[in-house]
């Protein structure tokens, strides 16, 4: 009887050992982290608080943009089993927020590097062709309508923190920036620059119909880094 008991105990121990070896052969991860998709705002607190720059920028177009930023925070349980993924929405309670923002986009022509090689005159001196620098877009101001901001949270969830709300605002402005080519602000900036500068050049002795103003490039959304001045606003 005793020998049978000993054999059974050894058998059980042996099974446990084999099971442990098998488990260690499998790559198993069990996590309960919360994944975040947002880009963090760069911490530039090490920069100077006050930065003064001498510039020569002619702002020719201003767009007042209104947007309602929304976010729905729903928890999901994502499981992976032998290469198959399963996504289950959990009923832990929802929370939602709607943040109205007003953004001012302005487009400018930068004259700080303007050179006389960008001015072409005809031989008789009557015709003038000016090649202007490509216009750039900058966010000159953005304002959250705190009064109209609405939060909806279930009993089991906490309110959105101020940090989360400011992160959503930054994401909203980035969304606007990616739509800049579709807004047409660059074309408007070019047209307005011509409308402002042609009378100015005409005062220098040229006839308006003999003045041509051109720009170098037609921008698309892929050129965002070339025409968006991110030094003064949210990073892309």
């Amino acid at each position: 009887m005793q020998r049978i008991m000993i054999r059974k105990v050894l058998f059980a121990l042996f099974c446990c050992l084999i099971l442990a070896l098998s488990v260690s052969c499998l790559r198993q991860t069990t996590t309960s982290e919360t994944a975040t998709d947002s880009l963090s705002v760069a911490d530039d607190s090490a920069n100077l608080v006050l930065r003064v720059r001498q510039t020569s920028r002619l702002y020719t177009a201003a767009y007042q943009i209104h947007k309602i930023i929304t976010h729905a925070d729903v928890k999901h349980l994502k499981t992976t089993l032998l290469g198959h993924e399963y996504d289950t929405q959990l009923s832990l309670g929802d929370r939602k927020v709607a943040i109205p923002i007003d953004v001012t986009l302005q487009a400018y022509v930068d004259f700080s590097s303007f050179h006389e090689s960008q001015i072409q005159r005809s031989a008789d001196g009557r015709h003038l062709h000016v090649i202007l620098p490509d216009p750039k877009v900058v966010v000159t101001s953005s304002k959250v309508d705190h009064e109209s901001t609405k939060q909806f949270t279930d009993l089991l969830r906490s309110d959105y923190s101020d940090e989360e709300l400011t992160d959503f605002t930054a994401q909203g402005v980035r969304q606007i920036l990616h739509q800049v080519p579709e807004l047409g602000i660059l074309n408007t900036a070019r047209d307005n620059a011509a409308a402002i500068l042609i009378p100015l050049f005409a005062a220098l002795g040229y006839e308006e119909e003999n003045i041509v103003i051109s720009f170098r490039k037609e921008f698309t959304s892929k050129d965002l880094p070339f025409y968006y001045d991110e030094k003064e606003s949210v990073k892309l």
Partner: peptide
């Protein structure tokens, strides 16, 4: 990944329309 379990929530905002309230010609 043979077995994994994750509790996730996205911090990405929804894609919403952008409204142009006004377009101004300025000379600043």
């Amino acid at each position: 990944e043979l077995v994994s379990v994750q509790l996730v929530s996205s911090n990405a905002i929804d894609l919403t329309p952008t409204q142009i309230r006004s377009i101004e010609r300025i000379g600043l």
